[in-house]
Design a protein around this nucleic acid. Structure first.
Lengths: 412, 412
DNA sequence: GCAGAATGTTCGGATTTCCGAACACGGCGT
DNA sequence: ACGCCGTGTTCGGAAATCCGAACATTCTGC
């Protein structure tokens, strides 16, 4: 899970430090262990390579982890800090979290818990290793290697995946990895026009094939290709085996293509296939995508947000994401646009789940209470705040009205 | 420091609560004190005016503050929460802060410290309110997100809402959010003419459909459409699926339309529906609308007014607003025209109320009964008449529900 | 500063509401 | 016929609500 990550460990206890180092290295991380405050300050200020996260004990022989963090903040932006301490106090936890620490664990803790928290924190854009495109899940990594292989070869490519899974992004990534990367990248969407439009879009005087030269031409929704367009595409692909552009096509699923495409076209396209699984089949990637997109959008904000609240992330991980990555990006963008606090709350990511939709139905007691509140307000307004008179209007005893006002919080 | 801020206090300890209330009110805040979990849940879910911050004890007799916060998150976006507790644990602090709480204090604390933290939480809030259209209430925010979604899609839209709720404004806002925003926006009101007039207004040589091109055509009071106009509208909408204008229609309520429109027309329109709740169902928005309109009108005045007096605002918050936003705008305009002092007084906003206490006023029992009847009817409608299930929805025993149905005459 | 009124608050008992348990009845599938 | 399920109905006790009485406190007009 922590493959290739750089982790700094600041810990003065030999036993603790050794056991943590062991375990983290077992997970594939590269651990740098600082045993004193002084060493840590130096090592973190001018790191040999950037750390993805700092695991920091608070009580050190020659200083405190808190101090370390604050000193580093004075000189720049330190990596995310995860504090661990045996003498935990709530005040300290609050102080640290509010000054930007990523997390705070009380010793003794479960190693599994630590790893889970590390996973949430670790910066999604790793400086080393292959830059992730789809995520850290097994499936996503398999995609990466497939893309590399496809980039090394040079035939037509078929990219399959539900709406919003990032088919075009995959195409662009392959293009970037290949030796055509300097050449143009052109994408056309066949579902947007009719037969004549498609033909013009692709083969016209100013069409995609003219512009793409020896770059990559991506044809989206190939399943919508009209018959005569399919015919010309077969010819084009045949030509492109020897020279010209590389053709990539995308669509949602294979059965559809098998049914709707000319057999020979389908055969040509079916050589190099990249199938992107929907987000719901690789839930490990959801948190990662959220974090990566959040960081990106947050950087472009006037006043930056602190993060995504735990309940909100929980909901996101459980959500079905029928619109996959596109939906995720959209939801996050909207949430960040309407966010009021400094964290994104569940209702901001999933407003429709909250507001009446289907879900909640207010109980009789709630409805009654609301009605009472409202009527009492009105009565008080009419009497200008006079309780006795309002009680007369409402035809209850003054005592009862007083009691209700207490209950409903209307006596302030 | 806290002048005019609304603070909710959730605290079961009498002494603590009283002293906090005193001190905060001394600072100019309006404090609403909830002494139990249950009452806080009710009061915070449907607040009379939005709270700027919630000061919340964690250990309550009938629940926990943490629970309260999470429950509120399930139903919307709660105000910033500042937790206070005597039994602080670091784990709890971390969990709460990462769930979106604004701050966490351990008792006993310095009052000065509390005020400082409150100041940090509250001060940035005043900047909110730039992008809002209908107001800051939960319901209004749900509308915003719905409008965004509608703007992203492209079918006919049905906008429902009482008179004066701002249906046309909503249509214009959707138009502004959509990619047609550069195209014309044309509105026609069907209730103003007879059948021939309607036809001419819409389809005539210089009619709305001619002028609107590929923009947005708003048809107000669609329920007044004559039969032959309805027929032509079905055709128009059918055409507009592929090209031409986007149609939006407005009316007051759905049952009316269902009864008076051709079924196929109703079906076409009923795909994208935006229902604007009346102002009285979202009282939090009243203050906001007043302030916004006041600022706007004040800027256009020769000699500017200082504001709306507190009693006047109080009255406004409690008023029923049968004419919704339009009435509010009207009253405010009149008040500003006849204002003599430098603040708007209650009598200027509600001249008729001051002169004499008008008309009937329903008692608490009546209001309660009405609310119960309404809610029971809704529950029965949802369950298709199932009494047991409805009782579960309403969270009363089957016996009680039956008893109430007898009393309210709902069993026939 | 004083009388009188309105409000804040408590208390005990009358009344109402609410609930669960029970029983009868009528569909409904098998 | 038979369970099975939901409904209509009654009943007794537990829990709440409501009320008036009472008293302290605060406000208000004079």
């Amino acid at each position: 899970m922590l493959q290739g990550r750089n982790i700094a460990l600041v810990e003065d206890d030999e036993i603790m430090g050794a056991s943590l180092t062991d375990r983290l290295e077992l997970e594939g991380a590269r651990v740098t262990w600082f045993k004193t405050f002084g060493r840590a300050l130096g090592g973190l200020r001018t790191p040999l390579r950037p750390f993805d996260v700092v695991l920091c004990d608070i009580r050190l022989g020659d200083g405190s982890g808190e101090d370390l963090f604050l000193r580093l903040c004075d000189h720049g932006t330190p990596p995310p800090f995860l504090f661990m301490t045996g003498q935990a106090t709530a005040d300290q936890a609050v102080r640290l979290l509010r000054s930007g620490a990523a997390d705070y664990l009380t010793k003794p803790f479960d190693m599994a818990a630590l790893l889970a928290r590390l996973g949430q924190i670790i910066s999604p854009v790793s400086a080393v290793g292959s830059a992730l495109v789809f995520g850290p899940s097994q499936a996503a990594r398999a995609l990466e290697t497939q893309m590399v292989q496809i980039a090394l070869s040079d035939g037509p490519v078929l990219i399959l995946g539900e709406t919003g899974t990032g088919k075009k992004a995959a195409a662009r990534h392959i293009h970037g990895l290949s030796d055509r990367r300097a050449a143009p990248f052109v994408a056309v969407d066949l579902s947007r026009t009719d037969a004549a439009g498609q033909e013009n879009l692709l083969f016209g005087a100013d069409g995609a094939l003219q512009r793409v030269q020896d770059g990559v031409l991506v044809i989206e929704r190939i399943g919508d290709a009209a018959t005569q367009v399919q015919a010309r595409l077969v010819q084009t692909i045949w030509d492109s085996q020897t020279r010209g552009a590389r053709i990539m096509v995308t669509d949602t699923d294979e059965p559809r293509l098998r049914a709707v495409l000319r057999p020979d076209l389908f055969y040509h396209l079916n050589m190099l296939v990249l199938t992107i699984p929907p987000l719901r089949q690789r839930p490990e990637d959801i948190g990662w995508m959220l974090a990566r997109l959040f960081d990106g959008m947050n950087a472009r904000r006037a006043e930056s947000l602190k993060g995504i609240s735990l309940p909100a992330e929980d909901l996101a991980l459980r959500h079905d994401w029928p619109g996959n990555g596109r939906e995720l990006r959209g939801r996050l963008a909207r949430a960040m646009a309407i966010a009021t606090g400094d964290m994104i709350l569940p209702a901001e990511l999933f407003p429709e789940k909250i507001s009446e939709g289907e879900g909640e139905f207010s109980t009789l007691a709630e409805a009654r209470e609301q009605a009472e509140r409202f009527q009492i307000e009105r009565a008080l307004a009419r009497t200008g705040g006079g309780v006795s008179e309002a009680a007369k209007l409402l035809q209850v005893s003054r005592t009862t009205l007083w009691e209700k006002m207490q209950k409903l919080g209307l006596s302030g």
